[in-house]
Amino acid sequence: MAFWILAPLMVVAALGLLFVRKAVHAALLLAVVMISLAVLYAVLEAPFLFAVQIIVYTGAILMLFLFVLMLIGVDASDSVVETIRGQRAMAAVAGLVLGSVLVIGLAQISLGTVVGLDEANNGGNIEALANVLFSRYVFAFEATSALLITAAIGAMVLAHRERLEPKEGQAALAARRFQDYATSGKHPGPLPAPGVYARHNAVDTPALLPDGTASEASVSRVLAARGTVRSAPAMVDDITEVQRQLGVDAASTPETSGKAGATAHTEEEAR
C-alpha cells in the first residue's frame, strides 16, 4: 500500500530533479526521494537501513550538499541554453531506450514467491546484520574503514589552501604603504571617516575636506557603486533647517562658510 503511494511521488520528485532550475530545489526534491526510500526500506523489512538512510543520507549527505551550495552561491543555477549540440536529445533518447528496455525486460520475468526475512531477522534485524557483517564481510568492513579514513584525509587536503608566501607583518605593511606613497602618491594613512550628521548614521554621506569639498574616499565603494551616496550639498537645506530650528544665525556660523563650495568632487580634483 505504501509502495503505491510513494512510488509515483518518488518518480515525480526524481523527474523534478531533471527540470528544476535551482540547485536548492533539486536538493529538496532529492530529500523527498530519499525519505520515501527510507520508508520503502522499512516496508521491505530493513529497519536498520531505514534508520541509516534517514540519518546518513538525508541527514548528513544532503546537508553536506546544501552546505556546499551555500558556499558556492545558492543562485548558481543552470542556464537554459544547451552548450553541446544534440546532447539533450541524445540523452533523452538513450534514457528512454534504457528505461523501456529495463522495464520491459523486468516485466517479462517472474521472480517467484517471496521468501521474506522473518527467519533471517529472527532475533532482531540489527543483530542479524551485525552477525553477517562481522563474520562473512569483515574484510570488506575493514576495507571500508580504510576508505573512509582516506576520504576524510583527501577531503582535508583538497579543501586546504596552501599559503604560498609568509604572512606579511606590521612592519612590512607599513614599509609597503610608504613605498606606495613614494611611487604613486597613494595616501598612507587610513581613509577618512564619512561625514557624521545628527539625523543620520551618515555612512552614505561623504566627509567634508577643510576647504568644504567632499572627500569621496570617505564613503564605502559599495555604496558608491549602488549610487546611494548622498552629497553634502543635498544636506544644505537640512542644515539650514536645523539651524533655523536651533535659532542660530546661519551667516555667523563657521559651518556654513564652506557650504557654497561643498559640491562633490572627485578625489583627484580635490587634490
Partner: peptide, 24 residues
C-alpha cells in the same frame, strides 16, 4: 574528444545500452 564530461558520459551510456541490448 571535446572536453565535456557529459559528452563522454553519453558515450558511456551508449556502450552500456549496446551491451544490454546485445545480452537481451
Amino acid at each position: 574528444q571535446n572536453g565535456y564530461v557529459r559528452s563522454y558520459a553519453l558515450s558511456l551510456l551508449g556502450g552500456v545500452l549496446l551491451v544490454v541490448l546485445a545480452l537481451m
